[in-house]
Nucleic acid binder design. Structure first.
Length: 285
DNA sequence: GCGACAG
DNA sequence: ATCTTGTCGC
């Protein structure tokens, strides 16, 4: 079989005591290795980037309209506090995946599409380094639904959570950029190390640093997205977008600390979950 | 061995 | 991720 994590553990019968946590992790690691072979870390897309002009508006090069980057997606999954308790096994929604698409050619970065996926009976665990196995299946379904209906807003590029970017990018075959609000401690990377380097760069005008692990591997970049913020965001290498291009795009669409597509996906999934949980609304239609 | 570990 | 209050600032 070749499901590559497309299905939830429940569907493979992993909750029925046959697989230990170690066995699941070994299995997931194998899938990650397979996906890694298909990962493209260089620019590989048809669209052109808008060129920021001095007037603050984006100017299009003398290009044909059709190839300009316009529709940018953002995805997120929110959970209710009862996720790990008995309530998760009830019929009430215990989580919500969201997909939003923004038109980045508008000054306000207008949201032009949104869709949600409510989770019920969700029992896939969160294990550091394996976030994608928990969230990618949900997000793939949301993307597939758009594709199946030939939705004109189908994103040309999508922002995802850190690490999820590679996984979702390969499986959906869409350019992706990963964004983290916290550092994933791998390959010798530490919060304090990042902050020191960022502090040093502070005076030199650049507002980002490359995240190079002790193995020499480049994992992404840390950057201050807003002038005032001392806490950086973490940009990870995703699929079909080089790190340099990813940094350029992130700078284009940060109204606040977190890039707008991710921020909207986060806000809207939390809101949609709250409106559809049994807390207050109960059975609102 | 112990702790730390995206969401 | 989620639970939590007010509070300071643009």
């Amino acid at each position: 079989m070749d499901d590559h994590g497309l299905r939830h553990g429940r569907d493979r019968g992993e909750s029925s005591s046959s697989s230990s946590s170690i066995e699941i992790q070994n299995h997931w690691r194998e899938i990650q290795d397979l996906l890694k072979e298909r990962l493209i870390t260089q620019d590989d897309f048809l669209w052109k980037l808008p060129i920021p002009s001095s007037s603050g508006n984006v100017a299009v090069e003398e290009e044909e309209e059709g190839t300009l980057l316009k529709y940018v997606g953002g995805v997120d999954v929110s959970y209710s506090k009862e996720l790990d308790s008995a309530a998760a096994a009830s019929t009430a929604a215990c989580g919500c995946g969201s997909l939003v698409v923004l038109d980045i050619t508008t000054p306000t970065l207008q949201v032009v599409y949104q869709d949600f996926f409510l989770l019920t009976n969700f029992d896939v665990p969160y294990i550091p380094s394996f976030l994608a196995f928990r969230e990618a299946p949900i997000l793939l379904q949301l993307l597939q639904k758009m594709k199946n209906t030939d939705n004109p807003f189908y994103p040309q590029l999508s922002f995802t959570g850190f690490g999820l970017a590679c996984h979702l990018g390969v499986l959906a075959n869409i350019p992706t950029i990963g964004i983290g609000k916290n550092l994933h401690h791998v390959d010798g990377l530490t919060q304090s190390g990042v902050r020191q380097l960022l502090q040093a760069k502070d005076s030199s005008g650049e507002d980002f640093i490359t995240l190079t692990g002790s193995s020499g591997c480049v994992w992404g970049a840390a950057m201050r997205s807003t002038k005032g913020s001392c806490k950086p965001i973490y940009i990870s290498v995703g699929h079909r977008v080089s790190l340099n291009t990813a940094i350029k795009i992130v700078k284009m669409i940060c109204k606040y600390h977190v890039p707008e597509p991710i921020r909207q996906a986060d806000i809207r999934s939390r809101d949609h979950l709250q409106k559809n949980s049994c807390g207050n609304g109960g059975t609102l239609q």
